[in-house]
Simulated scan of single mutants.
Amino acid sequence: MKFKNIFLFTIVLFAVGLLIACNPVKNSSNKATSILKAGTAIIADSRSIPNKNKYDEPIYFKASGTEPFWGLEITAENFRFTSVGQGFETFNAPHTEPIWAMDTNVKKYRSMPDLGEMKIQITQMPCTDDMSGKENKYQVTVELKRGIDKDFKTFKGCGNYVTDYRLHDIWMLEEINGQSINVPQYGKERPRIEINAEQNTFLGSTGSHDINEKIFFERGLLRFIDIAVPQNLSIAEKDFIKNIQSVTSYKLEDNRMVLFNPSDELLKFRKTD
């Protein structure tokens, strides 16, 4: 009888010990699964934002190159560089304002994070991607130096500005030079423009004639270019075209797009669905 009691007591102790040993593993596993799911959700949300990176910052310039493969994203806050090159897999630096080279369309940036230095040169010159054959508008050179390096590592490639996706819509003219428009002066309908931010094109109407041309976009700059002026325009339509050709910048607020030249507000449009 004593032997039987001792045997049963031993079995109970073994079972209790087994339960205690297993519980932390189970809790740790659940915690790891919870963290994984939360991290996955964050990544999925950030990738769904147009023209934004995983840091939820609007990107206004992208560049890439080969030998080795590398990529650059520029936001209003940061320069973010990635590559497959050893030691330069990631290299981030705070955004700085560019220095314009004299008499050329060349922008130069220099940023010095805590452990290194980054120099970027963006030149407005046609550039063909070595891998895809895609034509780009800018040649890009990135020079990086880590704190332990004596010399810069140079990366060369191509890039383009990323047109503000908020411009991508149909806009109806409301005001010109600060005055509400008189629709009958424009012919059949209210003047409008429809901007395609991905293709950097726009189409629309002066009121009685169609227009269909291109836009040029850089950070803080918007131009409507290569506009073929239709024949037999009314005075109001000619004034509309003249103002469109003079635009250099824009502001978006309250479903309105306001277009400016360096000194004046020229045109105000209302977004329409």
Rank of each mutant, 00 (worst) to 15 (best):
F81Q: 04
F81P: 00
F81V: 02
V84Q: 12
G85A: 15
Q86D: 14
G87Y: 13
G87L: 12
F88R: 08
E89H: 14
T90E: 04
F91L: 04
N92C: 06
N92S: 09
A93F: 02
P94Y: 02
H95V: 09
T96F: 01
W100L: 15
M102R: 15
N105F: 14
V106Q: 14
K107V: 06
K108E: 13
S111I: 04
P113T: 00
P113Y: 01
P113F: 01
L115A: 13
L115E: 12
G116I: 05
E117V: 07
E117Y: 10
K119R: 14
I120T: 03
Q121L: 10
I122T: 03
T123Q: 15
Q124S: 10
M125Q: 15
M125A: 15
M125S: 14
P126R: 11
C127D: 01
T128V: 12
D129H: 05
D130V: 14
M131T: 15
M131K: 15
N136F: 10
Q139F: 08
Q139P: 07
T141G: 07
L144C: 02
R146G: 11
G147E: 13
I148G: 04
I148Y: 14
I148Q: 10
D149G: 01
K150V: 11
F152E: 05
T154A: 06
T154M: 03
T154F: 02
T154W: 06
F155A: 00
G159K: 02
N160I: 00
Y161S: 00
V162I: 07
T163A: 06
D164Q: 12
Y165S: 13
Y165Q: 12
L167R: 03
I170W: 06
M172E: 12
E174S: 09
E175V: 06
I176P: 05
Q179E: 15
I181P: 01
N182G: 03
Y186L: 06
K188L: 12
K188S: 10
P191Q: 08
P191L: 07
R192S: 13
I193A: 03
E194L: 01
A197L: 10
E198I: 13
Q199P: 03
Q199A: 12
T201F: 03
G204K: 04
S205H: 06
G207K: 12
S208R: 00
S208T: 09
S208E: 08
D210H: 11
I211F: 05
I211L: 04
